[in-house]
Design a binder for these strands. Structure first.
Lengths: 353, 353
DNA sequence: CAACTCCGAAAAATCGATTTACTCATTTCT
DNA sequence: AGAAATGAGTAAATCGATTTTTCGGAGTTG
């Protein structure tokens, strides 16, 4: 039982040492599980530890080593299920290896990303899991390279010449979406994306286009790409529909795009899947309880997190070799928001609002 | 310009000191902004700092003080918008004061909650923001009290005899929901909740019931309360409807309950608001883009975070006085999922699945 | 029996800052 | 003028561990 010290300062290794009648070095060895300690002394140490409720101070413990047992995680935001689950996973994996995870949100800003990184460098973190705002070529990755930091890039990346990367296999998933939509008879499809995340978006776009065109050379694929923010995307989308464009299906290349598409459908009084079909990259819990349920590409969060931490720790332990670029396979959940064109009333441009 | 040190170890305060031709103590004073330093020496220090790219090592800097400049945050989960926004806010507020936020997820487990707390105690965090899994009377709060930790409890709490608490004003919000539903003519309303979070749930429940009964003494209020988990709630809800119960409105007292209610409506082919009205405690981004948009109580995340950090730092700085229990007002967004009973086809127990 | 190797443990150095105590000069006050 | 107060700075102690070095004694060897 170890109470009674309460608010006063906690027992240090020296307190344990003097209580056990040994030196601090011996206590340190016992705690580290070194075998060259006389069993009798080890027992005295254990007893003292028990009586004083002693626990190693991780801060002091990390002081001497060049790399502290801290992993930094930088995510663009914490508000979505994807990054929420990602942080949960990363934290759990770091903890399993005796590391502390310090997570920070770059709030979709590259400037902040770099600031956070500098702070983590100050903390001398052993490694960083960076989900860049834009892609692998931003200032954050440069900073990491310039300062010789150990890290792994995830999510909005494809490959890098210095860091390992782990992301969802956007191209393959998009190809599958293409197969499904073409098979359902869609021949006029709108893709909605964000230009900033260049490589990933391109992979999703090309993955879709290549497969769609192969299966149906006559398919018409329109693309609405906003530069950086979501609101401009809404405006562009509105303009696109205002021109009278009437695709039979929309494939949103990212989560917020799915929200925007849905709300634009609402404005016009279009219902899925009768008036238009919808598939979104990235799944969310609500998508299966709404009516209709929204079809989505499910990213393998756990695998991405596990793989990222795996390769990160291998690098921390000094493993060499060229950086690897992992792509983890997604699942595509075709739900009610996808149907065949023309199977419903297809009410046309009625505007409800 | 400070590059060129790259992977080798970073400059320490002694490196700066010798380059500037002063002692480490002087460098420390300059960095801390102490005025009793000759301007000339201060300048030499600044120059050396610039040239070496020196930055204080927060770990070493914290070594001596009893309370490190770290704030711990423990949330039940990271996957929901509410806690995601909360962590983002808390991180931002901690950073503003020069503190580092270490966030951890208890994953809805009180056992884990206590483990995390023990680890944070090891880190000698200056303070903890705890959003308990259950309520303010769990083992985690006990641990904090037993060890004299500084902290503030948020979200699923009402008040405590030791710690300050900050949460949404559940009762007032629920009273407003009651007013709205009664005004719309509802006289048979189902409340859906989770028993584990006793006090908060009770506040929402009582807040609703009191006001509803005052305005319409003839109202019938049913309650389906699951003990701990969400799946049992689904089963109970299914059983409730299977009995032939047919309330005209459902008020879910927590987010997951809203999801469950919606999916049960789906199973039976009921649409909002024609067949049944729905209001949920806790808002989410998707709720305004689905059809119908789901009415919800919006919790004041920013205010809760700001108030929590405010009072926490006051306590860290030694402010005494009895613990305070803050309740922050919510907003109620009445959206399309709420209508008047009998205004639609009210199709009865049609089962789609 | 002296020289040598091992073992286990203690003493001391180290990590990178902060803080205390103390040393000279200057001022300031009486 | 002499005492006290202030200024500016340094050396050393400190925080709580880990790691390196040193040391005493037991056991081996020639």
């Amino acid at each position: 039982m170890a109470h009674r010290q309460d608010q006063q300062r906690r027992a240090s290794i020296h307190d344990v040492a003097s209580r056990a009648g040994v030196s601090a070095a011996t206590v340190s060895k016992v705690m580290a599980g070194v075998t060259t300690v006389k069993p009798e002394n080890a027992q005295r140490v254990f007893d003292a530890v028990e009586q004083l409720g002693y626990r190693i101070d991780p801060l002091a413990s990390d002081m001497r080593r060049a790399k502290r047992r801290i992993i930094g995680a930088i995510m663009p935001e914490f508000e979505s299920e994807f990054f929420g689950q990602m942080v949960t996973q990363l934290e759990s994996l770091a903890e399993q290896r005796g590391y502390t995870l310090v997570a920070a949100s770059s709030r979709e800003s590259e400037a902040r990303e770099k600031e956070i990184l500098a702070r983590m460098h100050d903390w001398r973190v052993a490694g960083v899991v960076l989900a860049p705002v834009r892609n692998e070529h931003g200032p954050a990755a440069d900073f990491m390279k310039a300062n010789g930091m150990t890290g792994v890039l995830i999510d909005r990346v494809l490959s890098d010449d210095v860091f390992d990367t782990v992301s969802a296999d956007s191209a393959a998933a998009s190809a599958e979406v293409a197969r499904e939509l073409i098979a359902k008879g869609h021949r006029h499809i709108l893709l909605v994306g964000l230009g900033e995340q260049a490589a990933t978006m391109r992979a999703r776009l090309d993955g879709f286009r290549t497969t769609a065109l192969k299966l149906a050379p006559d398919v018409r694929i329109d693309v609405v790409l906003a530069e950086a923010d979501v609101e401009p995307l809404r405006a562009q989308l509105r303009e696109y529909f205002a021109k009278g464009e009437r695709p039979t299906a929309v494939y949103s290349l990212f989560l917020k795009g799915t929200l925007v598409a849905l709300s634009e459908f609402r404005r016009r009084g279009w219902h899925c899947p009768n008036d238009i079909s919808l598939v979104g990259f990235d799944d969310a819990e609500w998508m299966q309880v709404t009516w209709p349920a929204i079809a989505a590409v499910v990213q393998p969060v756990r695998q991405i997190a596990a793989e990222a931490m795996d390769v990160l720790f291998r690098r921390i332990e000094g493993e060499g070799g060229p950086p690897m670029a992992r792509l983890e396979p997604c699942k595509v959940l075709m739900r009610e928001s996808v149907g065949s064109p023309g199977s419903g009333p297809h009410s046309g441009g009625g505007n409800r609002q």
